[in-house]
Amino acid sequence: MAMDEMPDVPDVTKKFLYVNRKAPYGTIYALESLEVVLIGAAFEQDVSLAFLDDGVYQLVDGQDTTGIGMKNFSPTYRALGDYEVTKLYVEKESLEERGLTPDDLMQITYEDEDDDWAEKPSIRIVSRAEMIDIMADQDVILSF
């Protein structure tokens, strides 16, 4: 599909969850997931992203890849709001197991069209129990 063409939008909106469980850079999973999310956003579905296990490292602030010769794609997560991807669920237990806190994550916001374009945080910290319910509430789960 060319970027300059609008895809045919399906009649029924489905709930899509992208599950991210791997740290960035060691494998291609994180970048592939992000690219699929950006392309898939054109289909105007109800998209959420889940970050658990090592996947929480994708959102850690202060990534600097100059020494490994790879592109730092972490700033792109901050563009997700422009693509109307505004629900980034991060599992609390996964952060804790890795010695991380919500303060270690990037600031990612979106502008709420229904609330006079107020800037709101996209990252939502959820417990494992809440994550289980979020997963069970989806039509489609895409794993990376």
């Binding site: 599950v19 469980r21 999973y29 989806q138 039509d139 789960i141």
Partner: peptide
């Protein structure tokens, strides 16, 4: 089942 969740 209603959905599949692949743990890679």
């Amino acid at each position: 089942h209603d959905r599949t969740n692949a743990w890679l």
